[in-house]
C-alpha cells in the first residue's frame, strides 16, 4: 500500500473519530452548563475536538513523511 493510499485511509479514520465525538452519547456527557476555567464546557468540547481533528488531519497530510 503506497503512502498516499495509507494517508487516505487514516483520514477516513479522522472522519470516523469526528462522528464518534459529535454524534454519539459522548456528546451528552459534555452537553452541560458546567464551566471550566470560565468557559462553558460544551463550547470547549465542540471547539476543542474540532481543532484537534483539524490538527490531526494536518499532521497526517503535511507531517513528517514516514
Amino acid at each position: 500500500m503506497n503512502r498516499s493510499i495509507r494517508t487516505r485511509q487514516r483520514l477516513v479514520g479522522v472522519s470516523l473519530l469526528g462522528l464518534l465525538f459529535y454524534f454519539s452519547p459522548i456528546l451528552t456527557l459534555f452537553d452541560k452548563t458546567t464551566e471550566w476555567a470560565g468557559y462553558p464546557i460544551s463550547y470547549l468540547y465542540i471547539f476543542g475536538i474540532w481543532l484537534a481533528l483539524i490538527l490531526l488531519a494536518a499532521w497526517m497530510v503535511e507531517g513528517k513523511k514516514p
Partner: peptide
C-alpha cells in the same frame, strides 16, 4: 447558541474524506 455550528462541522468531517471522495 451552538445552532450555527453544524454548518461547519459537517464540512470538516467530510473534508477528511476528500482524499478519496473529492479526488
Amino acid at each position: 447558541g451552538v445552532g450555527f455550528l453544524p454548518i461547519y462541522l459537517g464540512p470538516t468531517l467530510i473534508a477528511a474524506l476528500w482524499g478519496t471522495l473529492l479526488l
